[in-house]
Computed example of a mutant assay.
Amino acid sequence: MKITLNLSTLVFLLLIISSCKKDNTDPVVIESFPSAIGTEWHYRTTTYETQYDLDNPDKITDTHEYSKLDTIKITRDTIINDIKLRIYESRFTLEARKIEPDGLKSYAFGFKDFPRDMESYSDPYFEVALPLNENSSWIKCNTGNCSYGIKRKALGSEMILFNDSEINCIKVLSAHINENPDDNAIVHRWYSDLGLMKIRTEHEKLEYTDDYGNAIGYIKVIEEKVLVNYIAREE
């Protein structure tokens, strides 16, 4: 059977193809994040442990996998140093944050068992720059707040599966500005308009020992924290 397409049909098909391509390549720009009291993010954190042979570090000898669930919920307002903030509460911790015109910032941190003993930072931690796009970069903290600086830089966009749908996210890399030999982890984060979608932390392969301090092999740990449910609230 011979199929003949006229010129108008061809033009129409080309417009559809062009439109689809444009929709898939539109740059991702995140203007803000949900911040209403009662908003919840439910995460599943999976830890992957891989053990390697002492004499042959490329040979895998054992693997383990652990999972746990956690929830972050905005529970209430608070005032610290005359600044109105919102409390982000997890299973064990409290964090006082505020979304400002240039980004999401953390002003204090504490534990749920000691809510009156939250430690405020001399300068707020710059968690996420806003608006967040594929070219964003910022300094999370400086030597005034921590022993080493942390720079976060967007690497581009990437699709993340959430509730059977793909969401286009900004992928962000964390890197140490100064040398910090105690922590050589590679940390990637993915953000969307819903907030933090995923964290992947890949730790350096390290030697591990028995109860007597004798080296018996190497171990590599990878942690993935993935959003599995989101509950929205309105102001």
Score class of each variant (00 low, 15 high):
120 S>F: 06
233 R>S: 07
121 Y>A: 04
167 I>G: 05
51 Q>M: 15
155 L>K: 11
34 P>I: 01
191 Y>G: 07
58 D>W: 04
194 L>E: 00
144 G>H: 05
89 E>P: 09
79 I>W: 01
150 I>V: 15
106 S>R: 13
138 W>D: 04
217 G>W: 12
193 D>A: 00
25 T>E: 11
31 E>Q: 10
186 I>W: 04
101 P>R: 05
181 P>L: 05
190 W>I: 03
105 K>Q: 03
83 I>H: 13
154 A>I: 06
86 R>E: 07
159 M>K: 12
233 R>E: 13
66 Y>C: 04
56 N>F: 00
81 N>W: 09
19 S>F: 15
78 T>I: 15
127 E>N: 12
124 P>R: 01
221 V>M: 04
91 R>H: 15
116 R>V: 09
182 D>H: 08
215 A>N: 09
213 G>E: 09
74 I>F: 14
228 V>F: 13
119 E>Y: 08
98 K>W: 02
118 M>Q: 10
192 S>K: 03
52 Y>K: 08
150 I>R: 02
76 R>Y: 09
171 K>C: 08
182 D>C: 06
24 N>V: 00
180 N>G: 09
28 V>Y: 04
65 E>Q: 13
143 T>K: 15
94 L>Y: 14
67 S>P: 01
202 E>H: 10
127 E>Y: 14
144 G>F: 08
84 K>R: 09
76 R>K: 13
103 G>V: 09
194 L>S: 01
